[in-house]
């Protein structure tokens, strides 16, 4: 068994990482508390601290990014400055990662003071609360996603993401090349980085450095996007099917009916799995292509092998016992 890389679980990110990742999409700028950029966000949910502002701290989600919308800011503006300062200092001292004011609203003076004194970054965004919550939830889901890398090639075959695995030299890249030539797209060659999004989708990407490139024995390094056009590569794809190539052995038992289903586990998710043994004269690209179509058919509720077998069983039932052919 080859060594498989260990999955990585992300359980904290710094405010700076969050800010950098969302600089464009979340339209954020830092107003105060810059010294706290290394503060840690330990939860991917977002909190509105309205209750905490009234001095009620039971179940206050201190691990989360704190978002101050129109409601929170209006409440603070209607509160005396010394009282504001007291409650904001109490909140800050509970080690929240950062405070974010939406809609481009002006933070109150006590907010700025509490942020600076306790090193809690105070950030402003021009987005509305609703848009900010939606966009930052997606961003944090992505940043907190468990991840792992697999040795293999990821292809998009007519909308089905196929991860081709196998020992080095077994012909993964050659097969991918044949698929690209037939008009399908390459997502990642050699090392596929996989993230688990929303605890159900496995999304594969390539490393930035070799996006669109491939190494093929005898040819060396080739630029797929330049040779076959930009639509022959894509940046990411959900993984729907895993295919493992093995060097052919006399004793290998390959699936013959298609009734048994095998799974391959990635980050706790079971992905349908097919094994092909590599023999001379076998058109693996064609097999991968058809396997993807079979999978696509299954996804919309048609199982060829099962339907065929049911037809056969029904046929046998309707025939009278003992009747001649």
């Amino acid at each position: 068994m080859p060594l498989r890389p260990r999955p990585k679980i992300i359980d904290n990110i710094t405010v700076l990482e969050f800010l950098n990742a969302g600089r464009d999409s979340l339209k954020m700028s830092v107003v105060a508390g810059e010294r706290g950029m290394k503060n840690i966000v330990r939860d991917k949910s977002i909190n509105r601290p309205a209750l905490a502002l009234t001095g009620y701290y039971k179940s206050f989600a201190t691990k989360r990014v704190q978002v101050f919308g129109a409601g929170e800011i209006a409440y603070l503006r209607d509160t005396k400055e010394d009282k504001q300062y007291k409650v904001l200092t109490e909140i800050a001292q509970r080690h929240i990662p950062c405070m974010i004011v939406t809609r481009g609203l002006q933070p109150t003076q006590p907010m700025i003071e509490a942020a600076n004194e306790n090193d809690i970054p105070l950030i402003r965004t021009t987005l509305s609360t609703r848009d900010f919550l939606a966009a930052s939830t997606l961003l944090l889901e992505n940043m907190f996603a468990p991840r792992v890398s697999e040795h293999g090639t990821l292809m998009d075959v007519k909308g089905i993401g196929v991860l081709i695995r196998g020992d080095s030299g077994v012909g993964k890249s050659e097969c991918a090349l044949a698929l690209v030539e037939r008009g399908y797209s390459l997502v990642a060659d050699d090392k596929v980085n996989i993230k688990l999004i929303n605890e159900k989708d496995l999304v594969g990407t390539s490393n930035e450095i070799n996006r669109g490139y491939m190494e093929c024995r005898g040819l060396g390094i080739i630029n797929i996007a330049e040779l076959f056009g930009i639509r022959s590569v894509r940046t990411d794809k959900n993984i729907n099917l895993v295919i493992t190539f093995t060097a052919w052995k006399e004793t290998d038992e390959e699936e013959r009916t298609g009734l048994e289903s095998d799974n391959f586990e990635i980050l706790g998710i079971q992905v349908p799995h097919i094994r092909f043994s590599v023999k001379p004269g076998r058109d693996l690209a064609r097999l991968v292509e058809v396997a993807s179509m079979v999978q696509a058919l299954k996804l919309i509720g048609h199982d060829s092998a099962k339907e065929f077998n049911e037809r056969l069983i029904n046929q046998m039932k309707t025939e009278e016992p003992g009747a001649l052919i």
Binding site: L3, S149, H151, S168, D190, K191, N210, Y213, M214
Partner: peptide, 9 residues
């Protein structure tokens, strides 16, 4: 971690 038998890796 990458496979040491692969140039790209």
């Amino acid at each position: 971690q990458v496979n040491g038998k692969s140039i790209m890796g």
